[in-house]
Nucleic acid binder design. Structure first.
Lengths: 111, 111
DNA sequence: GGGACATATCGATGTCTGTCAATATATCTG
DNA sequence: CAGATATATTGACAGACATCGATATGTCCC
């Protein structure tokens, strides 16, 4: 279930959501609706090139390495972060289109 | 914890989120990250005047009356829906600014 | 006031998930 | 190949929450 699957979804306020559409959107929102994952996103986004090595992400969020790895996996699986392995290190980078797509689904267009 | 409290928050990609800021944003996102609540929002938004009586909301989502009432309370407490009682009936209406504010916090501005 | 109706609250229950310690996998270096 | 380092996976557990039935609260009408 990736953010990209929402591209075919109507806007939230456009028409009544069918059950499957609602579940798809909720699944993506659930990934973002966690303080640790929000902090990871913002930390990565704040780095030059919007990318960061995992080894630099454990300390700032104050969680164990397996937990951070777990969160990064969820963010990657849902298409919010890109993953690139360089030798022993793994770099995660932000996919801004994902957040922007989510924002556009939520927006009412009346602003 | 209402959406309006996010007005002082930086954008998600603007700067690293502090723990309290991340928790505040996550709390609001959690309210939206549920299929039943997403459907309620979209059903209400699709009505003329973006408002609906509770009695018209139970059937479409296929949940019990107490459960629907519970979801509406969460949506109201977080500032996404307005509540107005008219006699025996209660009407909930959408506050578009709330969704738009959320959308603007998520947006990277690079779109 | 009494009965009917609309909505909200309460208590209980099952499921989901965030977290960790332990361990596995993978890559580099000597 | 052996050891070291970086990341991922597994298993377990506690806390959060969606849901329901039962009941309470509030409002209208006779």
């Amino acid at each position: 279930m990736a953010v990209a699957d929402l591209e075919t979804c109507p806007t939230l306020v456009e028409a009544p959501l069918a059950e499957a559409e609602a579940e798809a959107l909720a699944a993506t929102l659930r990934v973002i609706a966690d303080p640790a994952r929000l902090r990871l996103i913002s930390f990565i986004a704040a780095q030059p090139g919007s990318e960061a090595c995992v080894c630099n992400l454990t300390a700032p969020v104050g969680l164990s390495q397996p937990t951070v790895s777990h969160h990064l996996k969820l963010l990657h699986d849902s298409g919010i972060l890109d993953r690139e392995q360089r030798g022993r290190w793994v770099h995660y980078s932000l996919r801004p289109e994902a957040l922007d797509l989510l924002a556009s689904v939520l927006s009412t267009g009346s602003a």
